[in-house]
C-alpha cells in the first residue's frame, strides 16, 4: 500500500471525515525519497471544541507509525464543517524547501 493510501486509511478509521485532501509535496524537497512531505486538509466535526494543537496531535497520534519514517513533514489544515464553509475551501500554500531535508539521514 502506498504511503498516501496508508495515511488515508488511518485517518478514515480514526476520524469521521467529511472532506480530505492529501497532497504529496515530496518533490519540493531534496533527495530521492518520494514519500517524505505531505500536505493534509481535513474537515471533521471531531475537531469541534478542540484547540489547534489538540487537532494536530490527534492526527499525529493516528499516523504515529508513519511519522519520522517515512514522513518528515506533514502540513495540516484542520477544520470543522462550519470553519471550512467559512473559508470557502481556501488553504495556505506550503513553503519551499531550503535544504534542511538534505541533512536528514
Amino acid at each position: 500500500m502506498s504511503v498516501e493510501d496508508q495515511i488515508q486509511t488511518l485517518l478514515n478509521e480514526g476520524l469521521n471525515l467529511v472532506h480530505m485532501e492529501l497532497e504529496n509535496e515530496s518533490h519540493m524537497h531534496g533527495g530521492n525519497r518520494l514519500d517524505t512531505h505531505f500536505k493534509l486538509v481535513a474537515v471533521s466535526d471531531d475537531f469541534q471544541g478542540k484547540r489547534l494543537i489538540q487537532r494536530h496531535q490527534t492526527i499525529f497520534g493516528l499516523l504515529s507509525d508513519l511519522m519520522q519514517n517515512p514522513i518528515h513533514a506533514l502540513s495540516m489544515h484542520l477544520y470543522t464543517q462550519a470553519e471550512w464553509a467559512e473559508k470557502s475551501g481556501l488553504v495556505p500554500a506550503s513553503p519551499k524547501c531550503m535544504g534542511g531535508s538534505k541533512q536528514d539521514k
Binding site: 513533514a73 513553503p95 519551499k96 531550503m98 535544504g99 534542511g100
Partner: peptide, 9 residues
Amino acid sequence: FPQCGFSSR
C-alpha cells in the same frame, strides 16, 4: 539562516 521552509516561516 533558516534551513527549512517551515522553520523559516
